[in-house]
C-alpha cells in the first residue's frame, strides 16, 4: 500500500515535470475552436440548411393544402346549403301551385253549383208562373161559366116567375 501511494506520488511528479496533466492548456484549444467553427459552417451547408428548407417547405405545403381543403369544404357546404334552399323553394312553389289549382277547382265547382241552382230556381219560378197563369185562366173560365150558369139559373127562375 505504501508502495502504491509512493508510486502515485512519483507519477504526479512525473506528469508535472513533463508539462502534461489534466489542465494542460495549449494550442489544442484555439485549433479545436477553429475546427468547431469549420464544422458548424460545414454542417450548416450540408445539414441545417437543406433539411431546414425541406421542413419549412413541408410545413408550407401542409398548411397550403389545409387551407385549400378548408376552402373546398366551405364551398361544398355552401353548395349544399344552396341546394337545400332551392329544394325548399321548389317545394314551396309546388305547394302554391297545388293550392292555386285546388282553389280554382273549388271556385269552378261552386260557380257551377251556383249556376245550376240559379237555373233550377229560374225554371221553378217559370213553372210557378205558368201554373199561376193557368190557374188564373182556369179561374177566369170558371167565373165565366159561373156567370153563365147563374144567368141561366136566374133566367129560369125569372122565366118561371113571369110565366
Amino acid at each position: 500500500m505504501m508502495n502504491f501511494v509512493w508510486l502515485l506520488a512519483v507519477e504526479a511528479a512525473e506528469t508535472v515535470e513533463e508539462g502534461g496533466g489534466l489542465f494542460d492548456l495549449d494550442a489544442t484549444l484555439p485549433l479545436m475552436a477553429v475546427q468547431f467553427v469549420l464544422l458548424a459552417v460545414a454542417l450548416n451547408a450540408l445539414f441545417y440548411k437543406p433539411l431546414g428548407k425541406v421542413l419549412d417547405e413541408r410545413d408550407g405545403y401542409i398548411s397550403s393544402n389545409q387551407v385549400d381543403a378548408a376552402e373546398r369544404l366551405a364551398k361544398a357546404e355552401q353548395i349544399a346549403k344552396q341546394y337545400q334552399q332551392e329544394l325548399a323553394e321548389t317545394r314551396r312553389q309546388a305547394q302554391a301551385v297545388i293550392a292555386e289549382a285546388q282553389e280554382e277547382a273549388q271556385k269552378i265547382a261552386s260557380q257551377t253549383v251556383a249556376a245550376a241552382q240559379q237555373e233550377a230556381q229560374a225554371q221553378r219560378e217559370q213553372v210557378q208562373r205558368e201554373l199561376d197563369e193557368q190557374k188564373n185562366q182556369a179561374m177566369a173560365t170558371l167565373e165565366q161559366q159561373v156567370d153563365g150558369l147563374s144567368q141561366q139559373i136566374l133566367d129560369k127562375l125569372l122565366g118561371s116567375l113571369a110565366a
Partner: peptide, 15 residues
Amino acid sequence: APTNDINTTVALALL
C-alpha cells in the same frame, strides 16, 4: 472522447 480534454471544453465554452 474529445470532451474529456479541458482544451476542447474550454474552446467550446469560449465560443
